[in-house]
Design a protein around this nucleic acid. Sequence first.
DNA 1: CCTGAACCTGACCATACGGTCAGAAAAAGA
DNA 2: TCTTTTTCTGACCGTATGGTCAGGTTCAGG
Lengths: 214, 214
Amino acid sequence: MTENSAINRTKIKRRSANRRATEATILAAAESVFAEAGFGGATMQLIADMAGLPKANLHYYFATKEALYRAVVQRIFQIWLEAADAMDGAPGPTEGIGAYIDAKMEISRRHPNGSKVWASEVMHGAPVIQDYLETTLRDWTAGRVAVINRWIAEGKMAPVNPDHLLYILWASTQHYADFGHQIETLNGGPLTEADWETAKASVKEVVLRGIGAI
Amino acid sequence: MTENSAINRTKIKRRSANRRATEATILAAAESVFAEAGFGGATMQLIADMAGLPKANLHYYFATKEALYRAVVQRIFQIWLEAADAMDGAPGPTEGIGAYIDAKMEISRRHPNGSKVWASEVMHGAPVIQDYLETTLRDWTAGRVAVINRWIAEGKMAPVNPDHLLYILWASTQHYADFGHQIETLNGGPLTEADWETAKASVKEVVLRGIGAI
DNA sequence: CCTGAACCTGACCATACGGTCAGAAAAAGA
DNA sequence: TCTTTTTCTGACCGTATGGTCAGGTTCAGG
């Protein structure tokens, strides 16, 4: 059992690389179908068709529909949290919250399906990620609230309730993904590059002026 | 056929009163189940149980699951539109937008399930109410955009993009219904009367200052 | 070339779902 | 009271779904 031989590692790596690629294909298809139809409306057959795989193969990689859904949601939560970094290390709210809005708007633009799945999950009472809400998200929120309170204490922004400010940030940015269809309908078509710039600028302008940081 | 005899009218009225009451019971149960499980996840049996009626009776009042869903969504859209009145006849953005925020926050508080069903419907591409989006909602939006532009021209607020301002308003207020579970988790329990007042005040403060109306 | 493990899949199964229907019960009308 | 209409419901049906499984295929390792 020379498990750390170069050949062995290479082959194992190729194996698991294929595995990860197939998993990624399935996850992408699943995200799309779950976003369009919701958990209840999605079918394994539909996901399989979209992934170009036989249905039974899905069950080889993900034991149950719920396990697959779980994997999709967790991947989204990771992306969601990464945007949090944008707020770190900023000298003040203009930079910190501005960058956070940019990051979250970019997520809405690049991962609209992920955002929808997340929204759907939370709307239905977060049956799968309740523990994340109570641990990771709670901790993250507490940290940002502290930062905002510090900025307020330093006179860098108006004394706005930090929790509700975060809700406004989340809501305003995610809205462009979750309600993207409504926006596109009113807009008469998909948002152009310029439209997205206007959107970002508008949200930042209103929020930053709203907290007295402009 | 003395159709307009008093007795006749009374009996017809009682009949249709019963009918309406049963329909209302079914609609309330359906709204709750659709909000919790989504269209695909909801079952007629579950709705029937919650309404305290045999499943077959549901099909007597609503031919199909989709017809029932349609009725639920349309009822919500009515409530949604009624809040629009709050913005009318206001002398300026402080009163108009302030009242609109109050009205929409109140909807999020009183009709969280309705809001969730609406959100779910739009997120899934508005298969049922697409025509409403393109007609009624589009007209309503155009009207408010005109009002906002007038306020801007009159120097009563900053020259904020009116469309994106509306999105911020919708997003920030509906968030308290659609993501109510997340908020309650972070809050450590349901929002109290005082919490709701803080929420309303915070949204109004940030938005109104954000558009230069404070 | 052989072996065993990992990977893949068509065919199948039990269940739960939306919807139907015959006919009972209740109410209205004469 | 008798008839007609409306309301209600248990039992049933066809279908689609999530999930299983036996057996095939591929591929690394010796």
